[in-house]
Amino acid sequence: MKWLPENRNTRVLAICASVAVAMVGAAYASVPLYNLFCRVTGYGGTTQVAQYNDETRILDRTVEVRFDASRENGFPWTFEPVQRSMTVRLGETAIAYYRATNNSDRAITGTATYNVTPYKAAPFFSKLECFCFTEQTLQPGESIEMPVLFFVDAEMDAESRYDDVTTITLSYTFFESQAEVAGAAVGRDAAP
């Protein structure tokens, strides 16, 4: 290897330094690469995001879609699905609503994370529009209904290993926005 120094000790140092730099680079790249992997494959219940429903077929096969809502401990919102479930045909676009209420005496910005179970159904569950794509700010006592526009891809019917998927659960968890939490901490710690 011509790029390595001739001195044995210098060569070992160069190899170790290269390995250390590669490991640090891999550590920084791991989170974005993992997120990309989950979005592409649906791994871990990550749903697909679609620009539009290009399904030309709507099948007779149906699935029950259940809606679940939770929130971070201590997060002062009430958060719940407006309807607990609905039955949709594969390929059909549907809309569901969640309701959030700020029970505190201050404006709060929240953000939602989501997943789908069973995990193997996640690559077929596509959201066209969702409140989880942006942060939500609620004033004290304010309530809003937030839509989720989605469809279950008809391609799920193409393989027999998905025949047992008759129910899909869409779960959301609301957290206080990290920028909001950091700002509140700065405000608390600031000198009067």
Rank of each mutant, 00 (worst) to 15 (best):
A26W: 06
E6K: 14
L33P: 01
V24Y: 03
W3M: 09
R8H: 08
R8I: 11
G42K: 01
T10A: 15
C16R: 12
S18C: 08
T41A: 05
V40M: 10
Y28M: 14
N9Y: 06
W3I: 14
T41R: 01
L33M: 13
A27C: 12
T41P: 00
V21N: 01
A17Q: 04
M23T: 12
F37M: 08
L4R: 02
A27E: 07
A22Y: 03
N9I: 08
G42W: 04
N9H: 06
A29E: 04
R39S: 15
V24S: 09
T10C: 07
V19H: 04
Y34M: 14
R11T: 00
L36M: 11
G42T: 01
E6P: 00
N7V: 02
N9C: 03
N35W: 14
N9P: 00
P5G: 05
V40T: 14
W3S: 12
Y43R: 09
R8Y: 06
W3E: 10
A27K: 07
L33Y: 06
V21R: 02
S30H: 12
C16N: 13
Y34Q: 15
V19M: 10
A29D: 03
V31C: 06
G25E: 05
P32E: 07
S30D: 07
A26L: 14
V31K: 14
S30I: 09
R11E: 00
A26G: 13
A27S: 14
T10F: 07
L36E: 11
A22D: 00
N7D: 14
R39D: 13
L36W: 14
L36D: 11
N9W: 05
Y43F: 15
Y43K: 11
G25C: 13
E6I: 09
P32A: 10
V21E: 03
S30P: 03
G42A: 05
R39I: 08
P5L: 01
N9Q: 09
M23Y: 09
N7R: 05
V40R: 14
R39T: 11
W3A: 12
V31N: 11
L13I: 07
V31M: 12
C16W: 07
E6Y: 05
Y43M: 08
V21G: 06
A22M: 11
N35R: 15
V21F: 08
V24N: 04
A22F: 09
A20M: 11
L36T: 13
R11F: 00
L4A: 06
V19P: 03
M23N: 10
R8V: 11
P5Y: 00
Y34C: 08
Y28I: 13
A17D: 02
T10V: 09
V19A: 13
Y28Q: 11
L4E: 00
I15F: 02
V31S: 13
V40G: 05
W3G: 03
T10G: 08
W3C: 07
T41L: 04
T10D: 14
E6M: 06
A14I: 01
Y34P: 02
V21T: 10
A14C: 05
V40Y: 09
C38H: 05
S18Y: 02
A14K: 01
R39G: 10
A14Q: 02
A17G: 12
V24C: 09
R11P: 00
R39A: 15
A17M: 08
A20I: 08
A26K: 01
P5K: 01
Y34K: 15
F37N: 10
L36S: 12
Y43N: 07
A22I: 05
N35S: 14
R8T: 09
G42D: 03
